[in-house]
């Protein structure tokens, strides 16, 4: 069985089936929805972090822009939710293009600059002077397109899309070249790899995934505020889930979301501020001591983790 088929059959398919049928048996649909959102975001982060090494602390910026792209399309253009989702993705792509110069920065500088960019977008969106356009700090309401089932399954489709990108990267020459760039960008260039173009494609795909996820989030929760859509803990959570499980694999982020987001929902929901702190610290510990995540405890022994 080719590796990409294996990745699909053993990881993505079971996940999709599980998330697909659970709403029929389990009442707390919002919780399922949130899990689905994080599966998508953790894989979207995997696309950029796992394959290029860039650590985007401001990843939530794309999510927030997607959420607002969706909402403003509904409010001002009265589009269908499907078209609004496309606009959400497009909005994140535009932000991604604007932020391409950040890819020249390395390591912590990139992480900080990206975080600052997300903050800047948040302040623009929540600016009371832009109330006519963005509703400023007062938030948006999308009750007229509310469709929880449909938006749930759209989120699932986006999770599938994000996972397919990861499967593609893991099992193609394109993805291998990305990993080569991550290991040593000068060597990669000397091997003839168009470093800037490849990185940019990965960056924009990652932005697109977060933007679509933000759009579907807006659709599902229907009423939200700038601080909901640009909440830094969304970045932190997605990062820690991908890192904890193991970036560059398909399975790692899935495990990360199941364990850590599960844990958060079991005991963290009453003390969210501590979890933001704990998970923030966990990111640092992981980067320093277990950069390949817990799946590397297995892959280290030469076993291929899907």
């Amino acid at each position: 069985m080719p590796n990409y088929v294996r990745d699909f059959v053993f990881v993505l398919l079971p996940l999709l089936v599980l998330l697909g049928v659970l709403p029929f048996f389990y009442r707390n649909e919002l919780l399922l929805f949130n899990f689905t959102i994080y599966f998508a975001l953790a894989q979207g982060l995997n696309v950029i972090y796992g394959f290029t090494g860039y650590l985007p602390f401001g990843y939530v910026g794309f999510f927030g822009v997607g959420a607002y792209g969706f909402a403003l399309a509904i409010i001002h253009l009265t589009t269908s939710p499907a078209l609004a989702l496309a606009i959400a993705g497009l909005a994140a792509l535009v932000l991604g293009v604007i932020l391409i110069p950040l890819l020249r920065l390395s390591g912590a500088y990139f992480a900080i600059a990206n975080l600052a960019a997300a903050q800047a977008v948040y302040h623009i969106v929540s600016n009371p002077d832009l109330q006519d356009i963005t509703k400023g700090p007062y938030g948006v309401s999308l009750a007229n397109v509310f469709a929880p089932r449909l938006s749930y399954y759209s989120a699932l489709a986006i999770t599938a899309l994000a996972s397919v990108v990861v499967i593609w990267f893991r099992n193609s020459r394109f993805g291998l070249a990305l990993q080569a760039i991550r290991d040593d960008s000068l060597s990669a260039a000397m091997a003839g790899i168009p470093v800037v173009r490849q990185r940019t494609i990965a960056w924009l795909l990652s932005a697109l995934i977060a933007g679509l996820t933000g759009g579907v989030f807006a659709w599902h929760i229907s009423v939200f505020y700038p601080e909901t859509a640009f909440d830094i803990s969304i970045s932190i959570f997605a990062l820690v889930f991908a890192l904890f499980g193991g970036a560059t694999t398909l399975l790692g982020p899935v495990i990360g979301v199941l364990l850590l987001y599960g844990l958060y929902n079991l005991i963290g929901i009453t003390i969210p501020q501590y979890f933001q702190l704990i998970y923030g610290i966990l990111i640092v510990v992981l980067v320093l001591f277990l950069p390949q995540g817990i799946v590397s405890l297995v892959s280290r022994r030469g076993i291929r983790v899907p």
């Binding site: 290991d183 040593d184 060597s187 003839g192």
Partner: peptide, 15 residues
């Protein structure tokens, strides 16, 4: 400066 996480063959194949 090889690609450390890639196999020797992958290093050469990519080039």
């Amino acid at each position: 400066r090889p690609f450390l996480s890639l196999t020797v063959r992958e290093n050469v194949e990519l080039a």
